[in-house]
Simulated assay, not measured.
Amino acid sequence: MGIPVSSPLQAALDSIPEHEAATVLVSATGAAWTYNGFAAVWNGFRTGLEEERLIAPSHTLKGLRHIVATTLREAGLY
């Protein structure tokens, strides 16, 4: 079963360069993220979201992942 995606998300996924990593998101070099590399990028991204008041300062990446999964399940898409 596939999960429908919005046009902006599909465009973003289509723009990812081909790579050999076993993950969807990769570093600028096309390699899978290291923990420290991803943490550094996530912290900067999270700070921007907090400044725009799109997420609360207490939100973690794991927590946001659970929110998305719950929202998809409640919508019957997961």
Rank of each mutant, 00 (worst) to 15 (best):
M1R: 12
G2N: 11
P4C: 10
S6N: 07
S6K: 03
S6I: 00
S7M: 05
S7R: 13
Q10T: 08
D14F: 06
S15M: 07
P17R: 12
P17M: 09
H19V: 07
E20D: 15
E20S: 12
A21Q: 06
T23L: 01
T23S: 15
L25Q: 07
V26M: 04
S27R: 06
A28F: 03
T29P: 00
T29F: 04
A31W: 00
A32E: 15
T34M: 04
Y35K: 11
N36F: 03
G37W: 00
G37M: 05
A39F: 04
N43C: 06
N43S: 13
F45M: 10
R46N: 05
R46T: 00
R46M: 02
R46S: 08
G48R: 12
E51A: 15
E52Q: 15
R53A: 11
L54T: 12
L54Y: 01
L54D: 13
A56C: 07
P57T: 14
P57D: 14
P57H: 09
P57M: 06
S58E: 15
H59Q: 08
H59N: 13
T60M: 02
G63E: 12
G63K: 08
G63P: 06
L64M: 15
V68E: 09
A69F: 01
L72K: 01
R73G: 09
L77F: 10
L77H: 10
